[in-house]
Design a protein around this nucleic acid. Structure first.
Lengths: 207, 207
DNA sequence: CACATATTTAATAATGCTATTAAATAAATT
DNA sequence: AATTTATTTAATAGCATTATTAAATATGTG
């Protein structure tokens, strides 16, 4: 708790808000509750972040970027085989989800609540996704020509990757309760599915 | 609108509530808004359904059953090959999702908001899922022995089926806006993915 | 220290929501 | 027709929420 004392109230509010927003979403989280969690006056939340919506935006955009980067910021490792890049991307994506298991649900819900947000995010990302895509696609096309990879569509592949990983975490609490898994069994299940998902994708792209 | 005049207020309230709950979820829908949609006094909603929570429960359980049955109530067609049964189940599931595209999100959100609901649903379903599973599994085991189907786990297969279909509808609004699809393109995309999903599953179970 | 600025709190306005109650109206029953 | 029962409304209690304001306290600066 000593580390907490160093942090500014502004930061503490942000961190508490992140936890609560991810746990219960925007509408079920109140600024009063955020303040209570931090142990400050409710007006302070508004002093630093003006409105609940604005506070949420700060967190949402940061987390969305984190989500995005976990998938798209792995091209730094230049000279890997396409297969290894996919492995890297999927592991990175999985790691992020393990730390933020409720993030996909938050993103889906909030983009449904405020569809105009999508345009703002698109603007923020600019041509970055296309750039990464183009680069990876070049890599892919080369390997297809070399007969190392089946002729696949990169977008479809990405949709599959994200779907497989995200769905796992989205349905996990449900499965956990239905099958009555304890924490150890849950961890084991996740570790197993991480590999399964990767294996599935790698198998599906073989020539 | 003549048909509407025949319906009781009780029924009209239920229908309006269903639309609104599926559109915006439990917490963003108010009984005031439901009443306004129907064109009645807000107290009438409470007269017929006592509490908002209770009204929601009526709708939720009914919709959950609909979801459930779309997957589990296809064993009536007895003597089909396993592959054809899967095709039937996936089409039935897809049809249901096309009519209720936001249902999965509602289910996920509300089971997260009230985890105790899961136990109630389990109780309501009793041994029915196991029964269907056992029956289908017998069918599957026979076909595995006959070499018609690869040795797969039925639960894993079901998770894959549900995941593929559900994810599609969950991310559809997002993809629609990102790629700027109009209604025709959206329909086309859906028709394409319906077949893709089925093909994928059927391919994956081949010996 | 004196003054300015930043942080924090208490109080509260304004709003919207659920649920209840009592009264009014319509429908059914005797 | 009289009486009971069902439906519907108006009014409102009670609560939680967001956001603002003015005052209080702490912190920094010349």
């Amino acid at each position: 708790m000593d580390a907490q004392k160093d942090k500014s109230m502004e930061q503490l509010i942000l961190e508490a808000a992140e936890v609560l927003f991810l746990e219960k979403g925007f509408s079920l989280t109140s600024t009063t509750e955020i303040a209570k969690t931090v142990g400050c006056n409710q007006a302070l939340v508004h002093y630093y972040y003006r409105t609940k919506e604005h506070l949420f935006n700060v967190i949402f955009e940061q987390k969305f970027m984190q989500f995005f980067q976990s998938v798209f910021d792995n091209n730094s490792l230049l000279d890997l085989a396409f297969e290894d890049k996919i492995k890297l991307i999927m592991n990175s994506h999985f790691d992020m989800l393990q730390i933020n298991p409720r993030l996909p649900q938050l993103i889906i819900n909030e983009l449904a609540r405020q569809p105009e947000r999508i345009d703002r995010l698109k603007e923020k990302l600019r041509s970055y996704p296309e750039k990464v895509f183009a680069e990876l696609n070049q890599n892919l096309q080369t390997e297809i020509l070399e007969g190392k990879v089946r002729n696949i569509n990169l977008l479809d592949l990405f949709i599959t990757i994200v779907t497989l990983n995200v769905s796992l975490f989205m349905y996990l609490p449900l499965m956990q309760q239905i099958f009555g898994l304890n924490e150890d069994q849950k961890s084991e299940f996740l570790a197993h599915r991480r590999i399964e998902n990767i294996d599935f994708v790698l198998n599906s792209i073989r020539p």
